[in-house]
Design a protein around this nucleic acid. Structure first.
Length: 455
RNA sequence: GCCGAUUUAGCUUAGCUGGUGGAGCGUGGGACUGUUAAUCCCAAGGUCGUGGGUUCGAGCCCCACAAUCGGCGCCA
């Protein structure tokens, strides 16, 4: 059995006047006792199909009449253009076969009502409805979720495309690691590796590919990955997952500015690719195409931390120099942004040891965050790395971080260290922002949060 | 971790000053030859999140717990 006819192509008019065989699922059903309308869907779209008693015979017609939502069927018939049919085309059914049925005692649970859940402000909660999260395995096939999966695929493709086009090599790091990347972040412990003789030896799920990428930097010079990262934070927001997809790059012979060029490059390329490949999908979830085009077509301004603090103080926000910019401060700042902005040169005290100190002013580190507008916030964090053995030892000791788990990382710098850097991009966050999703959980098939690990 | 909110049928929800819980969708049965979330008639479906308390009487008042959501902190 090979499927050759796709509903999306039928709706483009490629089969007008021809007999086709459509394989798909029942999306809706209505009609009278002599005429039934069903809407059939597949992965490419949906189409109205008409079943008439005299054309089908009593037996087939009665099957059609009692058919339940999400029954899988094969329908044969002739396609015609029709102004009355949603989408512009319809199929006159000549024969039908039910492939997989649905039990009427357990009908498909997701209906229009279940999609209309709103939060206290009246905003839809597609990504935050408990019912939809519990039924994610079935929700995936409902319009808006399917669209999100397609947008996600487009973004992943665009990332590979961008980096490979820029001569980056794809490189994989282990997911079980012995040390943390982020100083303050919470790690997921993996008990499997625990050893009675050495009970203090802990193994965790990775938070970032970065440390292992730096090890391969002298070999590959330009490398990237798209891989899951894990953070055991008790975050209760629309922007956090405990398991998220992290696109990271590392680049030799590069400074902070060189890295930002690629951060801007890849994000704009994702926006452009989505517009090119998924215009229809974006429209179907009411995303403003002009906004996405603006993010694809315009350069992303850069602003130093000090300037951001001044702006915030000018707006009456309480912030002192040296404080990190948390999300509530970021959102005040990004309110006036019409495109993403880079924030650079954070104070050294606000950032971990692997960020390189600015040789021109040792109060700062050579780093950057990319902040997305519309309240979505940070989508990239990156910068230059501390690349000499002497400096990395100083900074590790200064922070009070134990050297042991990082021995391999330090060692890399003992053999021909070079200036280098990279960034991490939250793929789910970027998709969520470009799609205008109500929550990051909308754009990942099975979200994992501090309280959600099923289905 | 902190703060706030929510929990009534498979789903979405109404429920007055405390007095035997209503509806829409869905499901089952019936009517209808061009519907667009079809329409119309009928039926089934509820120990009101769990446990305790106040009361003659609790979906409603009080306490505890749980689940979930939202905001913050942390970050991609």
């Amino acid at each position: 059995m090979v499927k050759t006819t796709w509903i999306g192509d039928v709706q483009k008019g490629q089969y007008n006047g021809k007999e086709v065989e459509l394989m798909g699922w029942i999306k809706r059903e209505r009609g009278s006792n002599k005429l039934r309308f069903i809407v059939l869907r597949d992965s490419t779209g949906s189409i109205q199909c008409v079943g008439k008693l005299d054309a089908l015979g009593e037996k087939s017609f009665n099957l059609l009449k009692g058919i339940l939502i999400e029954t899988s069927v094969i329908l044969k018939g002739v396609v015609s253009a029709s102004e009355k049919a949603p989408g512009g085309h319809e199929l006159q059914i000549s024969s039908m076969e039910i492939v997989g049925g649905v039990n009427s005692e357990r009908p498909f649970p997701i209906n229009e009502d279940s999609l209309r859940v709103v939060d206290e402000n009246g905003s839809p909660l597609y990504g935050g409805s408990e019912f939809l999260l519990n039924h994610r395995h079935l929700y995936l096939r409902v319009g808006r979720q399917t669209t999100m999966l397609k947008l996600r695929s487009s973004a992943f493709g665009a990332i590979h495309n961008y980096f490979r086009g820029q001569e980056f090599i794809e490189y994989q790091a282990p997911n079980f690691v012995a040390g943390a990347v982020e100083g303050g972040s919470t790690l997921f412990e993996v008990p499997y590796f625990q050893d009675e003789d050495n009970p203090d030896q802990k193994v965790y799920l990775t938070q970032s590919w970065q440390l292992y990428a730096e090890a391969a930097m002298p070999a590959l010079e330009r490398l990237y990955t798209i891989a899951p990262s894990f953070r055991a934070e008790q975050s209760r927001t629309r922007r956090h997952l405990t398991e998220f997809w992290h696109a990271e790059m590392e680049m030799a012979w590069a400074n902070n500015n060189d890295i930002m060029v690629h951060g801007e490059g890849v994000v704009r390329h994702i926006a452009k690719t989505m517009l090119d490949e998924c215009e229809q999908e974006l429209t179907s979830i009411d995303r403003d195409l002009d906004l996405v085009a603006r993010y694809a077509d315009n350069p992303y301004p850069r602003m130093r931390y000090d300037e951001a603090v001044e702006i915030l103080q000018g707006k009456g926000v309480k912030i002192e120099w040296g404080e990190d910019l948390d999300h509530s401060k970021e959102s005040v700042l990004t309110k006036d942004f019409d495109v993403p902005h880079f924030l650079t040169h954070y104070p050294k005290i606000a950032k971990p040891f692997y960020h390189r100190v600015d040789p021109d002013d040792e109060k700062y580190v050579l780093c950057h965050d990319l902040l997305a507008p519309e309240g979505y916030g940070e989508i990239i964090g990156g910068g230059e790395r501390t690349w000499t053995e002497k400096e990395i030892l100083e900074r590790i000791d200064e922070e009070g971080t134990p050297r042991d788990p990082y021995q391999f990382y330090i060692d890399v710098r003992s053999y021909g260290g070079v200036p280098h850097g990279g960034f991490g991009l939250g793929v789910d966050r970027v998709v969520s922002w470009l799609a205008g999703a109500t929550s990051i959980r909308e754009v990942i098939p099975f979200p994992r949060t501090s309280r959600r690990f099923t289905p």
